[in-house]
């Protein structure tokens, strides 16, 4: 079953209408998420992330295009049996106790009562709410409600997890705990699709990312492959006769010579290593060498920020 498409989005268009005015929130995007993948869905505010996720959950209806989950129409009961979902902002019934809420959601997933009695305390412990099952949800903090949200999402051990704003409202400890839970689920083969503004989190957890801007996918692929071309390697050195080594520089390399020191910048780690070895063998004085790895955040800013705003 590996390689099977769990989510298939085809030419999805989501339009919001307000009287005569209509806004195209999602503009004909297509993508697939394969079984066992962990995919991060990133983009600036208002890019169309939540609208896409709502379409995947069947909460809103596309103006055109199709969304299928496990080969079934989005929003169908059969697909929801296999999905765990955490909304962007969710409040849970404040008049219920934590365990009652989880029993309600577990019941809707048709988990037998006996199993639920065992599963609910385990889950509460797993998300860091041990001993809070008897407390009314109105007394939970925002972070605790988010943890409860995570518990309700994974209560039925779903095959697919869809999280809209993964760690919204969580403190650093909560984020750490959530990452542990997700890594464990990922290890078990659960497919994970989530949107997040925490790009370090996406970088840590995801195999691949989808970037969306103004309702269109602007970039998709493997996290490390995407960022590799933006990595920079710099060597500042002094060497009287460097002509032979410099003749082997790739065309995209940058070379500057201020008479006293020479500076080279290349994009490939292999070439950087070769150059360093050559300079050392030739007796050069290395003043400075640095590998500047691009973070997902740099990549994101570079790609998503409109050209006119760059460098501001």
């Amino acid at each position: 079953m590996a390689g099977e498409n769990v989510i298939e989005v085809e030419s999805l268009v989501v339009v919001y209408r307000n009287g005569r005015k209509s806004t195209r929130a999602v503009d004909g995007i297509s993508f697939q998420v394969k079984r066992g993948e962990c995919v991060g869905f990133i983009g600036p505010n208002g890019a169309g992330k939540s609208s896409t996720i709502k379409a995947i959950m069947g909460f809103l209806f596309p103006a055109s295009g199709t969304v299928r989950v496990f080969g079934l129409p989005a929003g169908s009961v059969e697909s929801h049996k296999r999905i765990g979902y955490l909304p962007e902002v969710a409040l849970y019934y404040p008049f219920m106790k934590g365990h009652e809420l989880l029993e309600l959601y577990g019941g809707l997933h048709r988990i037998p009562k006996k199993k639920l009695k065992r599963r609910v305390p385990e889950l509460l412990e797993q998300v860091g709410l041990y001993g809070m099952g008897e407390t009314l949800i109105r007394n939970y903090s925002k972070g605790m409600q988010q943890r409860l949200g995570i518990a309700q999402a994974i209560i039925a051990e779903p095959e697919l997890l869809v999280f809209d704003e993964l760690s919204s409202g969580l403190d650093p400890l909560g984020r750490h705990d959530l990452r542990e839970v997700l890594l464990e689920l990922k290890g078990k083969g659960t497919t994970i699709f989530f949107s997040s503004h925490e790009l370090s989190e996406v970088e840590t957890l995801c195999d691949s990312v989808l970037m969306i801007r103004s309702g269109k996918i602007v970039c998709e692929g493997d996290v490390s492959d995407l960022m590799k071309p933006l990595d920079k390697y710099e060597i500042v050195f002094s060497l009287a006769s460097a002509a032979e080594i410099l003749s082997s520089l790739p065309p995209d390399a940058t070379f500057e010579d201020d008479g006293e020191k020479k500076r080279i910048e290349v994009n490939s780690h292999e070439i950087y290593s070769q150059l360093l070895t050559s300079f050392v063998n030739a007796g050069a004085v290395i003043h400075h060498s640095e590998a500047r790895r691009t973070s997902l955040e740099d990549f994101f800013v570079n790609l998503v920020r409109p050209d006119g705003e760059r460098g501001k």
Binding site: M57, F59, V77, E78, H80, K81, I83, Y85, L86, P87, V89, A90, L91, Y92, Y93, Y105, L108, H109, R110, G149, Q152, A153
Partner: peptide, 14 residues
């Protein structure tokens, strides 16, 4: 209003 509908309708219920 309270957005309690989202987690509920994400469950297998029509």
């Amino acid at each position: 209003q309270n957005r309690t509908l989202y987690p509920l309708l994400a469950k297998p219920i029509r």
